[in-house]
Amino acid sequence: MKAATVSQLKKELQHRDTDELLQLCLRLARFKKENKELLTYLLFESDSEEGYIETVKAEIDEQFELINTNSYFYIKKSVRKILRTLKKYIRYSGNKETEVALLLYFCERLKNFNPSIKRNTTLMNLYDRQLVFIAKKITLLHEDLQYDYGLLLEELKL
Protein backbone atom coordinates (compact mmCIF):
# COMPACT_ATOMS: atom_id res chain seq x y z
CA MET A 1 0.00 0.00 0.00
CA LYS A 2 1.37 3.36 -1.00
CA ALA A 3 0.84 6.24 1.46
CA ALA A 4 -1.01 9.33 0.30
CA THR A 5 0.69 12.72 0.18
CA VAL A 6 0.16 15.29 2.91
CA SER A 7 -1.92 17.50 0.60
CA GLN A 8 -4.19 14.55 -0.30
CA LEU A 9 -4.64 13.74 3.38
CA LYS A 10 -5.41 17.38 4.18
CA LYS A 11 -8.09 17.55 1.47
CA GLU A 12 -9.69 14.34 2.68
CA LEU A 13 -9.64 15.41 6.34
CA GLN A 14 -11.41 18.68 5.48
CA HIS A 15 -14.43 16.65 4.35
CA ARG A 16 -14.78 14.72 7.63
CA ASP A 17 -16.88 15.83 10.60
CA THR A 18 -15.44 16.31 14.10
CA ASP A 19 -16.54 12.92 15.44
CA GLU A 20 -14.80 11.12 12.59
CA LEU A 21 -11.66 13.21 13.10
CA LEU A 22 -11.66 12.37 16.81
CA GLN A 23 -11.93 8.66 16.05
CA LEU A 24 -9.14 8.89 13.46
CA CYS A 25 -6.83 10.68 15.94
CA LEU A 26 -7.49 8.13 18.67
CA ARG A 27 -6.92 5.24 16.29
CA LEU A 28 -3.68 6.82 15.10
CA ALA A 29 -2.54 7.26 18.72
CA ARG A 30 -2.99 3.53 19.36
CA PHE A 31 -0.45 2.46 16.76
CA LYS A 32 2.81 4.16 17.69
CA LYS A 33 4.28 5.51 20.87
CA GLU A 34 5.62 8.54 18.95
CA ASN A 35 2.10 9.41 17.75
CA LYS A 36 0.91 9.34 21.35
CA GLU A 37 3.83 11.48 22.50
CA LEU A 38 3.21 14.04 19.76
CA LEU A 39 -0.49 14.18 20.57
CA THR A 40 0.36 14.62 24.26
CA TYR A 41 2.68 17.51 23.41
CA LEU A 42 0.12 19.19 21.16
CA LEU A 43 -2.76 18.85 23.63
CA PHE A 44 -1.07 19.43 26.98
CA GLU A 45 2.39 20.94 26.68
CA SER A 46 2.41 23.21 23.62
CA ASP A 47 0.84 26.02 25.68
CA SER A 48 3.86 26.27 27.98
CA GLU A 49 7.09 25.91 26.04
CA GLU A 50 9.17 26.71 29.15
CA GLY A 51 7.46 23.92 31.09
CA TYR A 52 8.09 21.55 28.19
CA ILE A 53 11.79 22.47 28.13
CA GLU A 54 12.07 21.83 31.88
CA THR A 55 10.32 18.47 31.53
CA VAL A 56 12.70 17.38 28.76
CA LYS A 57 15.72 18.61 30.75
CA ALA A 58 14.59 16.53 33.72
CA GLU A 59 14.34 13.46 31.48
CA ILE A 60 17.83 14.15 30.09
CA ASP A 61 19.15 14.36 33.66
CA GLU A 62 17.56 10.99 34.48
CA GLN A 63 19.04 9.37 31.39
CA PHE A 64 22.52 10.75 32.13
CA GLU A 65 22.30 9.30 35.64
CA LEU A 66 21.51 5.84 34.22
CA ILE A 67 24.57 5.69 31.96
CA ASN A 68 26.79 2.67 32.58
CA THR A 69 30.27 4.18 33.07
CA ASN A 70 32.18 0.87 33.07
CA SER A 71 33.32 1.34 29.49
CA TYR A 72 33.34 4.08 26.86
CA PHE A 73 31.45 1.68 24.60
CA TYR A 74 28.41 1.82 26.90
CA ILE A 75 28.80 5.56 27.39
CA LYS A 76 28.77 6.13 23.61
CA LYS A 77 25.69 3.97 23.15
CA SER A 78 23.85 5.76 25.95
CA VAL A 79 24.83 9.25 24.79
CA ARG A 80 23.65 8.48 21.25
CA LYS A 81 20.36 7.19 22.64
CA ILE A 82 19.90 10.35 24.72
CA LEU A 83 20.61 12.51 21.68
CA ARG A 84 18.16 10.50 19.55
CA THR A 85 15.44 10.95 22.18
CA LEU A 86 16.25 14.66 22.47
CA LYS A 87 15.97 15.17 18.70
CA LYS A 88 12.58 13.45 18.78
CA TYR A 89 11.34 15.86 21.46
CA ILE A 90 12.74 18.79 19.49
CA ARG A 91 10.80 17.61 16.43
CA TYR A 92 7.59 17.61 18.46
CA SER A 93 8.07 21.23 19.42
CA GLY A 94 9.26 22.60 16.09
CA ASN A 95 10.40 25.76 17.91
CA LYS A 96 13.94 26.93 17.05
CA GLU A 97 14.48 28.50 20.46
CA THR A 98 13.48 25.27 22.20
CA GLU A 99 15.83 23.33 19.93
CA VAL A 100 18.81 25.54 20.77
CA ALA A 101 18.05 25.56 24.52
CA LEU A 102 17.76 21.77 24.71
CA LEU A 103 20.86 21.09 22.62
CA LEU A 104 22.88 23.55 24.70
CA TYR A 105 21.73 21.77 27.84
CA PHE A 106 22.67 18.39 26.35
CA CYS A 107 26.17 19.67 25.49
CA GLU A 108 26.55 21.16 28.96
CA ARG A 109 25.69 17.82 30.57
CA LEU A 110 28.02 16.00 28.19
CA LYS A 111 30.90 18.39 28.86
CA ASN A 112 30.54 17.97 32.64
CA PHE A 113 30.08 14.20 32.40
CA ASN A 114 32.38 12.02 34.45
CA PRO A 115 34.50 10.20 33.15
CA SER A 116 35.55 13.00 30.84
CA ILE A 117 34.60 12.78 27.18
CA LYS A 118 37.99 14.29 26.30
CA ARG A 119 39.52 10.82 26.54
CA ASN A 120 37.32 9.42 23.76
CA THR A 121 37.55 10.62 20.16
CA THR A 122 34.05 9.50 19.18
CA LEU A 123 32.39 11.36 22.04
CA MET A 124 34.48 14.47 21.34
CA ASN A 125 33.46 14.37 17.67
CA LEU A 126 29.80 14.00 18.63
CA TYR A 127 30.14 16.93 21.04
CA ASP A 128 31.89 19.11 18.41
CA ARG A 129 29.25 18.27 15.77
CA GLN A 130 26.51 19.34 18.15
CA LEU A 131 28.29 22.65 18.85
CA VAL A 132 28.57 23.35 15.10
CA PHE A 133 24.90 22.43 14.64
CA ILE A 134 23.89 24.74 17.50
CA ALA A 135 25.93 27.60 16.02
CA LYS A 136 24.03 27.22 12.73
CA LYS A 137 20.68 27.18 14.53
CA ILE A 138 21.53 30.25 16.61
CA THR A 139 21.92 32.35 13.44
CA LEU A 140 18.22 31.74 12.68
CA LEU A 141 17.03 33.26 15.97
CA HIS A 142 16.24 36.86 16.96
CA GLU A 143 19.29 39.10 17.56
CA ASP A 144 18.84 39.27 21.34
CA LEU A 145 18.53 35.50 21.58
CA GLN A 146 21.52 35.10 19.26
CA TYR A 147 23.65 37.08 21.69
CA ASP A 148 22.44 35.22 24.80
CA TYR A 149 22.79 31.77 23.28
CA GLY A 150 26.08 32.77 21.64
CA LEU A 151 27.54 33.47 25.09
CA LEU A 152 26.38 30.07 26.35
CA LEU A 153 27.86 28.40 23.28
CA GLU A 154 31.25 30.08 23.81
CA GLU A 155 31.33 28.75 27.38
CA LEU A 156 30.80 25.21 26.09
CA LYS A 157 33.67 25.27 23.61
CA LEU A 158 36.57 23.26 25.04
Rank of each mutant, 00 (worst) to 15 (best):
A4E: 10
K157Q: 13
V79D: 04
R129C: 06
T69I: 10
T139A: 08
L102Y: 08
F64D: 01
K33N: 13
L26R: 10
E97S: 12
R91D: 14
T69S: 09
L38N: 06
N35K: 02
N70F: 10
I53V: 12
Y41W: 07
R129Y: 13
K11C: 03
K11F: 07
R84D: 15
K111W: 02
L39H: 04
K157G: 03
L26E: 07
A29Q: 11
A58Y: 04
L43F: 09
N68H: 07
E143Y: 11
N125G: 06
E97Y: 03
V132C: 00
D17N: 15
D17R: 11
Y52N: 05
M124I: 07
Y147A: 12
V6N: 02
S48Q: 07
T18W: 04
L140E: 15
H15S: 12
C25I: 11
R30W: 04
L83P: 04
A135Y: 14
S71I: 08
A29I: 13
L131H: 05
I90E: 02
I60D: 01
C25E: 15
T55H: 09
Q8W: 06
I60H: 05
S7K: 11
T98M: 01
D148P: 00
T122P: 00
L140A: 02
M1N: 11
L26T: 04
I60S: 04
E54W: 00
P115Y: 08
H142S: 09
Y147N: 05
L9Q: 01
D17G: 09
T122F: 06
A29F: 02
F31P: 09
K76M: 04
I90Y: 02
C25W: 14
Y41N: 09
L156Q: 01
G51R: 04
K32Q: 12
S7A: 14
T18E: 12
N70V: 12
D128E: 11
L39W: 07
T121K: 13
T85H: 05
R84M: 11
V132N: 10
A29H: 07
S93R: 10
L21T: 06
Q130Y: 10
L104M: 02
I138F: 01
M1L: 03
K111Y: 00
R91S: 08
L13P: 00
L22D: 08
K77A: 07
I60W: 09
L152C: 05
L151R: 06
K10G: 00
L42K: 15
K36G: 10
L152Q: 15
K32W: 06
K2H: 07
K111L: 13
Q23I: 04
L66D: 09
S71D: 06
E49K: 15
L156I: 11
L151F: 06
Q63E: 09
R30Y: 05
T55E: 14
K32V: 01
I75D: 03
L21E: 12
L39G: 00
P115M: 06
E97A: 09
Q23R: 15
E34T: 07
S116D: 06
